[in-house]
Amino acid sequence: MKISYECGACFLRQTREAMDLATDDDDLKMEIMNDVFKFLSQTFKKGTNSNKIGSYIHNLIKEKTGCYDPYINEKKLGNEIALKYLPTAQKILDDDDSLENRVKIAIVGNILDFGAFTLDDDIESFIKDSLQKDLTIKDIENFENSLNKHDEVLYLVDNTGEIVFDKLLLSKIKEYGINITIAVKSFPILNDACMEDAIAAGLDEYGEIVEIGAGTVGYVDSEISDEFREIFNRHEFIISKGMGNYEGLTEIDLSNKDIYFLLCAKCGTISRDIGVNLHDMLLLNK
């Protein structure tokens, strides 16, 4: 997906937040902010891919500060929030254990995204309210047909916290007799899930966990490893969680893929690209 004018302010907000988490050195923050300004002055142009810009900025901050995982505490907070609301999600399933509800709960987990929300946002309220909402786009019939049709699926996870809710959908997918491959980031970026996060959440119970070979914001095709490219190319059926993966995957040819995007539209750029309202939740077969 290409950037819009709104992305500029978002990149700068993320820069400030990541720096504040990574270091207390104000002089270093000034230096990094100047570097980001210079980078954006050269790259922030119509037609530029959003994932590549975001990935560069976050990796620059890690390199300059020496802080390998600035969002480590936020990732723990995300898991705590998810575990707090897991019984609420389970109660919904006790009342109506439908595939649609499993999908909706997995999408509600996508709200736990410190790249889209500020650290001061009341994320718990967003989750509680969203559990009561319906999906704006719900290609649920196509999704179930795909579950019945395919023998294997590649599941691209997004954030920590969110992966706790993913387990409820992964367990349902297992009932269809499908082999699941779960893809995580190789290196920390924002609050995205890495191997240790996925194992700690118990995702290895549902399938093989593999790394994409990169620490990028979402999926950046030019950065993935050769090993993961083979895995990606082999799978026809793909489930993609979150905005970052949507932004990156819609930049490449998916004509031979049966792909579903599960996300909450948390910014105006994404909302307009898909044609939905802000904070709408969707299961989109694209």
Results as ranks from 00 to 15, higher is better:
Tyr5Ser: 13
Gly8Met: 13
Ala9Leu: 14
Cys10Ile: 09
Leu12Lys: 07
Arg13Gln: 08
Arg16Ile: 14
Glu17Tyr: 11
Ala18Val: 12
Met19Ala: 14
Asp20Gly: 10
Ala22Ser: 15
Asp24Tyr: 09
Lys29Asn: 11
Met30His: 11
Thr43Lys: 11
Phe44Trp: 06
Lys45Pro: 00
Thr48His: 09
Asn49Ser: 12
Ser50Ile: 10
Ser50Tyr: 05
Lys52Gln: 13
Lys52Trp: 09
Tyr56Ser: 04
Ile57Trp: 03
Asn59Leu: 04
Leu60Gly: 08
Lys62Cys: 05
Glu63Gln: 06
Lys64Cys: 03
Tyr68Glu: 15
Tyr68Thr: 05
Asp69Val: 00
Pro70Tyr: 07
Asn73Trp: 08
Glu74Ile: 07
Glu74Trp: 03
Lys75Met: 03
Lys76Leu: 12
Tyr85Lys: 00
Leu86Val: 00
Ala89Phe: 14
Gln90Ile: 11
Asp94Lys: 12
Asp95Pro: 00
Asp95His: 09
Asp97Glu: 13
Glu100Phe: 02
Glu100Pro: 00
Glu100Thr: 10
Asn101Thr: 03
Arg102Met: 02
Lys104Thr: 07
Ile105Met: 08
Ala106Val: 02
Ala106Tyr: 05
Ala106Gly: 06
Leu112Glu: 07
Phe114Tyr: 15
Gly115Arg: 07
Ile123Glu: 10
Phe126Glu: 13
Ser130Arg: 00
